[in-house]
Design a protein around this nucleic acid. Structure first.
Length: 427
DNA sequence: TCTGGGGTCCTAGGACCC
DNA sequence: TCTGGGGTCCTAGGACCC
């Protein structure tokens, strides 16, 4: 007998965080912008009601925003991470088995609680969260994660259901919910697969669950097959109670304005390198591959994209060593006369730093280097990010992003656990 | 003028080794 | 006509997620 799995999903999370922080905008339309204030990444219900959609570039709806006096917020990920952690901690009081799935979602195993009325229990959870954090949530309950996602979606859309909670675990009428779910709204089915499935006359989650296993396996691999089984009520996707170490770490940003000087790009890439390396060290990994790219805007008339990849003889976690490679890469990728808009640093082939294969040909004094790196990390942890910086990061910051509408930065980063810092990546 | 930033998993094919 | 077989590592590409 499968166990009841709940998914707790925060409604309009980033926008709700801004509203929770500033009572003056509760009940008002609010939009949250991406890094660099380019597109809308979250909307309050009031903003959705104006017909604005997620991922719309700001300039396209400027008139609506002005006309309806919409509150505009630059993304404030520190705030969102802090709220997220509060919520995860609260969930821990309701079940010992919580999987923090993303910044605004958690799966919770309710198997110990099936003797209770699950809907009532979920309502208690919701109330506790909104009372203590100000964030509204929706809870879906089902025998599998994929079905719980469906319950959550339907619960969110239909207020006829017990407000904010839909339990299809106890309800026993899964078929009805599968029939009312479009195949493209199923967790694990994206745009491509939706199109392909529609071509075979599969339009709902129910249709998909009826398809033969070998057919699904052939066209959608084991991943698709797992989804089908989950829809049939057979759990195939395990709960993950511990965050596994990341296998690659990317730090990329678009710039606040276009850059044409190599020195400015060097500063940006140096900072991206430092950030990526910090994140990597926070999970105790070292990188075997380093890759750097420079590019123009996707919308530029004259497009340019150049990537430089390197394989290291010995994996490293030291910022200064990684820097020497990424800066060389900038030199190789750079071309005169291009208006650069974006750059990124990718560290991959990650492995445990304390267990790296060394080489006889290695000429680097690794002990000395790790002492330096540790000291820099320690100071920055204690006294704030960038108290000590590497010279290449510079101080001009020509690339700095626009953040013209940022809410108060009141949160002490010491209050956040390493895990949360890592998940939003601002260590 | 202004257009997101991260990640994961799976598969297939080639190189290389014994 | 026959053309080893199995294992691992690596890469690239395609799909997905929030």
């Amino acid at each position: 007998m499968p166990q009841p799995i709940a998914i707790i999903d925060c409604n309009n999370f980033y926008a709700s965080c801004e509203q929770a922080l500033d009572p003056a905008i509760a009940g008002r339309p609010v939009v949250v912008l991406s890094n660099n204030d380019g597109v809308i990444i979250a909307l309050s219900n009031e903003a959705k009601a104006l017909g604005i959609e997620k991922f719309t570039p700001v300039f396209k709806v400027k008139h609506l925003l002005t006309q309806h006096d919409v509150k505009i917020c630059s993304a404030n990920f520190r705030l969102y991470a802090y709220k997220s952690q509060q919520i995860m901690n609260l969930l821990g009081k309701f079940s010992p088995e919580v999987e923090a799935y993303s910044i605004d979602e958690a799966f919770v195993n309710l198997s110990g609680f099936s003797r209770f009325n699950l809907t009532d229990y979920a309502k208690e959870i919701r109330e506790d969260i909104i009372n203590k954090t100000g964030i509204p949530t929706t809870i879906g309950i089902a025998p599998t994660k994929t079905l719980a996602k469906i319950a959550n979606r339907i619960g969110k859309k239909q207020f006829g259901y017990s407000v904010g909670v839909l339990d299809i675990y106890s309800d026993g009428n899964t078929e009805k919910y599968l029939k009312m779910t479009d195949i493209g709204d199923v967790w694990g089915v994206g745009r491509r697969y939706k199109k392909m499935l529609n071509g075979f006359n599969i339009h709902t989650a129910y249709d998909f669950a009826q398809a033969p296993d070998h057919w699904i396996r052939k066209r959608m691999s084991v991943v698709g097959l797992r989804t089908a089984w989950e829809l049939r009520g057979m759990p195939c996707i395990d709960m993950k109670y511990e965050q596994p170490a990341k296998k690659m770490i990317m730090f990329s940003r678009s710039f606040g304005k276009k850059l044409k000087n190599k020195e400015d790009l060097v500063e940006a890439v140096a900072l991206f390198t430092a950030r990526a390396a910090e994140r990597m060290r926070s999970q105790g990994s070292a990188a075997k591959y380093i890759s750097v790219y420079l590019s123009t805007s996707r919308y530029a008339e004259k497009k340019y994209y150049e990537k430089c990849e390197m394989r290291l003889p010995v994996p490293t976690d030291a910022t200064c060593e990684i820097l020497s490679h990424t800066l060389k890469a900038v030199n190789e990728c750079f071309e005169e006369g291009i208006l650069y808009y974006k750059a990124g640093v990718l560290l991959s082939g990650l492995q445990p730093a304390n267990n790296t294969q060394t080489s006889f040909l290695d000429t680097v004094d690794r002990y000395k280097m790790s002492r330096v790196t540790e000291a820099v990390d320690r100071i920055n942890m204690k006294s704030g990010t960038d108290t000590v910086i590497y010279a290449a990061m510079g101080t001009k910051n020509e690339w700095k992003q626009n953040q013209n509408h940022k809410s108060q930065n009141f949160i002490d980063s010491d209050k956040l656990t390493i895990d949360i810092k890592r998940s939003v990546g601002f260590l």
